[in-house]
Amino acid sequence: MPLWTLRGLAQGIATADWPHGAADAHGQQGTLGMPRIAAERCADACHRCADVCPTQAIRLDTRGHLESLDYGRCVACQLCVETCPAGTLQPGAEWAFGVREREDLEWTLAPGPLPAEERLAAHIEQSFRGSLHVRHVDAGSCNGCESELQALNNPFYNLHRLGIFFTASPRAADLLLVTGTVTAAMREPLLAAWEAMPAPKRVLACGTCAVSGGACGGTYASGRGLDGVLPVDVWLPGCPPNPAAIIEALLLLLERKPQRVKGGRVHDG
């Protein structure tokens, strides 16, 4: 046992200097994110992107041009990007797509005016900001989200340093973090976990399955995510969202990071 301690010390610090330090120290170099949209380039009557999309995230107008893309349904499978002949849809490097309002995941050709300030129903309680306890519930995932959530506690991400902890009992939890499509059989245990949590309590829909059902929703057993099941505070699509994207979404919930995606568009600064 002492040998292990020495060994650990000898290996030095493995934790990323992120999000506080270097902006690119998140460890996700080279990963592809949601498709990027360069609008008004569509060829007439093309349809290809909508035809290949496995989750019907893409809607076209009567000319067959891209009208809207719902990132809340997107599993970042890259099929639309690969098939698009006009360059309207391009590979994107944006993977942190956490938002507070579900509509903010919807890109439309002609967006409405952005609200001057972030829409916030109620500010998060001051006491949560530095210490958040999270109860995770797998409501029917592929285990991809769990694999990335487990990674949050590895030395690279070391979630504890941000004051965020996974907790065993829903009675000690401030946040319910839900993955999966909400299967018929998991609906009741999920609601029981929510009921057992003390107020004030928050919900994070983690992964495209929890946001909309994603690639796996809509069968006789699988459900279509958290919409209409629980009041969601932050929606985070991704298939699965990588650990850094999950951290971004948690910090968004805690109001320690601003929301970057509005109206399906990334706004920095």
Binding site: P54, D138, G140, S141, T183, A185, M186, C216, T219
Partner: peptide, 16 residues
């Protein structure tokens, strides 16, 4: 409890 009916989800889908 996590049964999603994945095999049914394939039915009618294209091979890709």
């Amino acid at each position: 409890l996590k049964h999603r009916g994945m095999e049914a989800k394939f039915e009618g889908a294209s091979p890709m």
